[in-house]
Design a protein around this nucleic acid. Structure first.
Length: 273
DNA sequence: ACTATGCCCTGGGTGC
DNA sequence: TGCACCCAGGGCATAG
């Protein structure tokens, strides 16, 4: 499940391999029909062929490939998608849904077990991610912004951390990690948190995202970087999928519950409502 | 305006 | 060994 650190790692991997390169051919395979949101599969293939990638940016979990015709190819990997650079001849992965051939004889493969991934080809990037709030690593995601978004809300604080309008790029792994770092119970009604605790939570979000980025992300299951490699951060997490194991701070057994319908891991001693 | 639920999709794990 | 069932969850649509 690629979240901000994973998508940013892919972006950094792909920049030197893709920027300035031309797309010679795109093939969306049978079974990948739902991938192209803004166009039919055949239209998407035709529109992308012949374009040149000028820049690769990111907003939250969206990859933004800016093209030479002024449009942006917006890629979202959802839970199981990956985008990896390889040679032209490399055999297709079991779950390859599309391939993009480049003008230097290399190719990009879009693999996606569960077929939730999306491609938009748009003039205006906002149209592909209309609900996205500030990127969690941008200045716009400030302590004040977070305080304003949580103020008066009775929803669990974790639910709001996962809301991309609040902090684009935070997903289930880093929401749990940030809450542990800040010593906040995930089910706390968001509006009941005082300014000091929200500020602490804001700092914890940045800390966990930067930590993971330094490890090239977490590979709990399907995540692979832009070259097909795994991240390293999953062995360094504090709570995510560590239920039954001791808390690194106090030794209490980490528990797993559901908050807002999502699997949630926390330390019942360090994180109290 | 906010909150809760369901949908999409398929492999892996569990229990009988 | 085989089979039915549940779980994983990002983003969006819909209902309350």
């Amino acid at each position: 499940m690629p979240e901000l650190p994973e998508v940013e790692t892919i972006r950094r991997d792909l920049v030197p391999l893709l920027v300035g390169r031309g797309v010679t051919r795109v093939a969306i395979h049978p079974g990948g029909e739902r991938l192209a949101v803004t166009h039919s599969p055949r239209e998407m293939e035709a529109e992308l062929a012949g374009r040149r990638v000028e820049e690769i940016a990111r907003h939250g979990k969206y990859l933004l490939l800016r093209l030479d015709d002024g449009r942006t190819w917006v890629v979202h990997l959802r839970m199981t998608g990956s985008l990896m650079h390889t040679t032209d001849e490399a055999p297709a992965h079991r779950f390859e849904r599309a391939r993009i051939d480049l003008d230097d004889g290399t190719s990009l493969r879009f693999n996606d077990l569960r077929k939730f991934g999306t491609w938009h080809l748009v003039e205006e990037e906002r149209d592909a991610m209309p609900l996205a709030g500030p990127d969690a690593l941008s200045e716009a995601f400030s302590p004040r912004w977070l305080r304003e978004r949580l103020k008066g809300r009775i929803a669990p604080v974790k639910t709001l951390l996962l809301d991309q309008r609040v902090a684009a790029g935070v997903g289930n792994i880093y929401a749990d990690e940030a809450l542990w770092i800040a010593k906040v119970h995930p089910a706390t009604a968001a509006g009941r948190l005082g300014a000091a605790r929200v500020n602490r939570l804001h700092a914890a979000v940045l800390e966990t995202l930067h930590d993971s980025l330094g490890d090239r992300g977490s590979s709990f299951s399907d995540y692979r970087d832009g070259l097909g490699g795994e991240g390293l951060h999953h062995v360094r997490v504090h709570v995510f999928r560590r239920d039954g194991q001791p808390c690194a701070r106090c030794g209490t057994t980490i528990v797993k519950t559901k908050v807002g319908g999502r699997g949630t891991h926390f330390c019942p001693r360090c994180q109290r409502i």
